Structure formats: structure tokens, C-alpha cells
Simulated scan of single mutants.
Amino acid sequence: MMTSGLLCATDGSAISEKAVVYAAELARSQQQHLAFLTVVTGSEDQHPMVWDEKRLRAGDLPPDRELLSALSVATHQELQHLTCVRVHGRNPAAAIVSYAEKNNYHHIIAGSAGLTGAKRLLLGSVAADIVTRAHCPVTIVR
């Protein structure tokens, strides 16, 4: 089975920006394909929007602030093999892992604020949920 490379989840937060930088550096050092993915909460019936290398080179850029920010980091790292993806889902972690699995990504990268105790119980943790659900290695950046 062919692997598609690294998948970095981003929501535009400061902590996910750290994950974006880490993913871009890792992709460059390993010469891997890198995809940035953001989840729009809502109906899961909609198909993912994918901006592949061809669309990105043609100037067809995603309107999502978080994807544009990630794309800027990747461009600064001079990465050549990039994809930007917007998926819809009620559960961000499930949407991220599902996309990674369906598209054969072999490594997921995400940020986490490192919540513990009562805060984590009340707010939940997308990062922890990704780790629990993932079919592949997950790197959590703090």
C-alpha cells in the first residue's frame, strides 16, 4: 500500500501553528509529502475540498485562514509536495483520523495545549482523541 506522507491538522491557533512549523520542518528533512488539514464543524455529508500541488501552483488557494497560514510556513520552508484539505465533521478528531486513514497517510501531526485534570475533562482534547483513534503514529506538538 502506498503511503501519502504526513498529515498536519491545524485550526489556526497558536499551538497548532507550532505543529505546522514542526510538520514543515519534518517534511523537508524527510523529503515527504505534507498535507495540512482543517476541520469545519457541521455536516459530515460534504466531500473534502482538496487543493493539490497543481491547484496551489496555479494560484487556486484555499480561503481558510488556517490553511493559508500553514501554506505560508511551508512556502518559507521551500516545500514542494503540498496539499491543503478542508473536511467537515461534527467530531474533529474523528474527521482527521478518517481522512488520514482513507488517504493512506502514515503519520499525523497535531498541536495540544496540554490540558490536564478537570480542564481536560470539561473541555476534552482533540489531540488525545486523535491518539486514541489513529491507525498510524501521531506526533503531538506542545
Rank of each mutant, 00 (worst) to 15 (best):
A100M: 09
L71G: 00
G114I: 05
Q32F: 01
Q31E: 09
P62E: 02
A27Q: 02
P63W: 13
S43L: 10
D52T: 04
F36S: 12
S98R: 12
A94V: 13
K54H: 13
G12S: 09
V39F: 13
V40D: 15
P63A: 14
D60P: 01
Q46T: 10
K102S: 09
G111K: 01
P62Q: 02
K102P: 13
Y105M: 05
P62H: 03
S29I: 14
E101H: 11
S72Q: 12
L68P: 15
D52L: 00
S29K: 04
S72K: 14
P92M: 13
E66Y: 02
P92Y: 11
V73R: 06
S13F: 10
S43W: 11
W51L: 03
Q77M: 03
L26E: 10
A94K: 11
H76T: 06
V21I: 15
A35R: 12
D64S: 12
M49I: 15
T38D: 11
D64A: 09
K18Q: 11
L68R: 15
H47L: 12
D11Q: 14
T41H: 11
I15D: 08
V73M: 01
N91W: 08
S29Q: 11
R28P: 12
H47Y: 14
N103Q: 12
A93F: 11
N104H: 14
A27M: 06
A70V: 04
G111I: 00
E78F: 03
A95N: 14
D60H: 12
S69D: 05
E44V: 15
A113N: 08
E17L: 11
R55D: 10
S13A: 05
L56K: 04
A19V: 02
L56M: 07
H33S: 09
L82R: 03
I108Y: 03
T41Y: 11
R28Q: 01
A27W: 04
S69Y: 06
V21H: 07
H76M: 13
S29H: 09
N104C: 08
N103A: 13
E17A: 08
R28V: 00
V20M: 03
S13G: 05
Q77L: 09
E66D: 06
D60V: 03
A94M: 12
A113V: 07
E101T: 13
D11F: 12
G59F: 08
V87F: 02
E17D: 07
Q30G: 10
L56V: 00
H47V: 15
H33E: 14
T75A: 09
Y105S: 05
D64P: 15
